[in-house]
Design a protein around this nucleic acid. Structure first.
Length: 204
DNA sequence: GGAGAATTTAGACACTAGGA
DNA sequence: TCCTAGTGTCTAAATTCTCC
């Protein structure tokens, strides 16, 4: 097991890491302060302390907001993972019981997969979690990640090639495509190859 | 050990500076 | 001119120190 350097670690204020994470998320001192319930100046003081602590500017002012330095970007994921682990360990809540909860889950759906997923989900909820409510919203892939971070969505369903380390992903189902075509018009016979498919005009 | 003084720290208010 | 970051100063609370 890794030993803890208590003497040095004691000098580190955990709240500073929370402030750092908020600053990296919001890229704005004012919004980061609001995010964790502080005033702008308090967050500015926190940023100053973080700069002293890490010996780096961390965020510099730019035309498009506060720009993170390479050092800040390198620290972002480790800090967030650490905070997530602390949250899981310290703020562990009571075990979730779907049969008794009356929580309303906010779900963002990318693409047109509502028809494929929701009927089965609703049927399943009726059986195991009759008190659960769903608030469904169609949303694009990039917005889903932003809204998950902001807490305006609990869950995103779609095809995601990107995401941060703290975004948990689970395969929901596998899908395939069916190709409809007129063999006489296109002068191809089934089964068609990928080359055939790409050669002719098509709609996906 | 307890009480009071001194020190430290975090955050708010007010203000300034810089960029669009 | 407006918005936002940074800074100086003050205050309240917490902590540490000193004396009895």
């Amino acid at each position: 097991m890794t030993s803890i350097d208590h003497a040095n670690l004691a000098r580190l204020d955990l709240n500073l890491l929370v402030a750092f994470d908020a600053l990296l998320t919001e890229r704005s001192v004012t919004r980061a302060a609001a995010r964790i319930g502080l005033g702008q100046s308090a967050m500015s003081h926190n940023l100053a302390r973080l700069r002293t602590l890490f010996g780096d500017e961390l965020l510099t002012r730019g035309a498009d907001g506060m720009r993170p330095t390479p050092r800040a970007l390198a620290l972002a994921d480790p800090v967030r993972v650490t905070l997530s682990q602390i949250q899981a360990a310290v703020l562990q809540r009571e075990a979730f019981d779907p049969s008794t909860t009356d929580r309303v889950f906010k779900i963002g759906l990318a693409d047109s997969i509502e028809v494929a997923v929701i009927p089965g989900l609703v049927a399943r909820l009726r059986q195991v979690a009759p008190g659960v409510g769903l608030r469904l919203r169609s949303i694009n892939r990039i917005s889903i990640l932003e809204e998950l971070d902001a807490g305006t969505l609990d869950l995103g369903i779609g095809v995601f090639n990107q995401g941060q380390i703290h975004h948990k992903r689970r395969p929901l189902y596998t899908d395939s495509f069916i190709c409809l075509f007129n063999p006489t018009q296109l002068n191809v016979s089934p089964p068609i190859s990928l080359e055939d498919y790409l050669r002719v005009p098509h709609v996906l």
